[in-house]
Simulated assay, not measured.
Amino acid sequence: MTWARIMAPLSGGQGDPPTIAAAVALAEPFGAELACVYTPADVADVMPWMGEGFLGGVQTTALESLKEATAVGEGNARKAAAASGYAKTHFIGLQTPVWAGLSAESRLSDVVVFTSDPARGRGPLAEAFQQMVADEQRPVLVARPGLKVGGVVAVAWDGGKEASRAARLATPILERASRVVILAAPKASSRSFDPNRLKAYYAARGVSADVEVLSDSGDAAPGLLKAAGAAGADILVAGAFGHPRLQEFIFGGTTRTLLGTDGPSLFLSH
């Protein structure tokens, strides 16, 4: 299996260069296209708050300021994308309606790359992260410092739908890993499952994996992070748990801990 298109949402700010660097690190081993997608604040989202007569006075000034900031941000994002030096980089500047455009681009991408800040609800791309995970249910890589393809990959497994989807979609990076370890914490789950079933699934696809059964009960996240760290994992594959509510993705406890704690890069799927 392979990936052909990696997508990196950009804001035009200081977070763009590390996002692009992480996306290049993911795209390069596959020879994949890198789609750098500038995702500005949407004028259409602001206009309803201006009320009637928004074309006059303060409202017009605010609208023009937003347009100017968007143009500056796009210029910064273009420069950051060009500076990557990756030959297969493609820049896309989204226009109103921004969220529809972002959704369309993500649906034709294999993985969407973010850094930790948007994943923790910080900065201008926080809503885009929630949209990708919750609404579009796209595979997302939360890149941490030191991200690399070809190192150790840990797979968190509980036999559930979210974990199963993440485990399947991550197969391309597992095929290139130096070691794959399946982490299972049966005492932290209400369901009965056999991690050797996933090991057999991978073996049928040419991926050799070890199994480590954790003794932790309660919230599985601390045990998973500890085991991933002990294994020297560069990437932790996990299902993202939560519920869309009032257009906000409410993360479950395990997912919140994984996102909020420093550790390996995260490959997530909801």
Rank of each mutant, 00 (worst) to 15 (best):
205 R>K: 01
182 I>W: 00
158 D>C: 03
196 N>Q: 08
137 Q>P: 05
157 W>V: 08
193 F>S: 02
213 V>P: 07
161 K>Q: 15
169 L>I: 05
134 A>D: 11
183 L>F: 15
188 A>N: 08
199 K>I: 02
131 Q>N: 10
124 P>L: 12
161 K>L: 11
161 K>H: 12
193 F>A: 05
198 L>A: 01
178 S>I: 04
148 K>Q: 13
191 R>Y: 14
210 D>H: 12
194 D>A: 09
199 K>R: 09
128 A>Y: 14
126 A>W: 11
183 L>E: 13
185 A>D: 02
122 R>S: 03
135 D>V: 07
124 P>R: 10
213 V>N: 02
204 A>W: 00
203 A>T: 05
195 P>D: 00
211 V>N: 06
129 F>H: 04
210 D>G: 10
152 V>Y: 03
192 S>N: 11
174 L>G: 12
132 M>P: 09
153 V>P: 14
135 D>M: 08
163 A>R: 06
173 I>F: 11
126 A>H: 12
193 F>K: 08
154 A>V: 05
162 E>V: 09
200 A>T: 11
139 P>H: 06
143 A>V: 04
200 A>H: 12
144 R>I: 08
175 E>A: 15
181 V>D: 10
176 R>A: 00
188 A>L: 00
198 L>Y: 00
177 A>P: 11
212 E>Q: 11
190 S>L: 12
206 G>D: 13
167 A>M: 08
165 R>K: 07
143 A>T: 07
213 V>W: 09
192 S>M: 07
207 V>W: 06
166 A>S: 08
203 A>D: 09
199 K>L: 08
164 S>H: 07
129 F>P: 00
152 V>W: 01
188 A>P: 00
135 D>P: 00
136 E>C: 08
165 R>P: 06
212 E>L: 01
129 F>L: 01
135 D>Q: 07
213 V>I: 00
161 K>N: 13
206 G>R: 07
161 K>E: 14
168 R>K: 12
150 G>Q: 03
169 L>Y: 15
195 P>L: 01
130 Q>D: 15
205 R>A: 07
167 A>E: 11
205 R>P: 04
167 A>S: 05
176 R>E: 07
154 A>P: 03
134 A>I: 02
191 R>Q: 10
134 A>T: 00
139 P>L: 09
133 V>H: 07
206 G>P: 11
181 V>E: 09
170 A>F: 02
204 A>S: 09
144 R>E: 06
140 V>Y: 05
199 K>F: 07
149 V>F: 04
138 R>H: 04
143 A>D: 12
212 E>W: 02
189 S>Q: 14
199 K>P: 06
155 V>W: 09
197 R>G: 00
211 V>Q: 06
151 G>H: 10
175 E>T: 13
213 V>G: 03
167 A>I: 07
152 V>R: 12
164 S>T: 15
131 Q>V: 10
204 A>R: 14
149 V>Y: 03
192 S>C: 00
198 L>P: 01
185 A>V: 04
191 R>E: 14
129 F>V: 02
184 A>V: 06
168 R>I: 06
149 V>G: 09
197 R>D: 15
189 S>R: 15
148 K>M: 14
167 A>P: 02
168 R>N: 11
187 K>N: 15
140 V>F: 01
171 T>P: 01
204 A>C: 03
153 V>K: 12
141 L>W: 02
196 N>P: 00
205 R>F: 02
190 S>T: 13
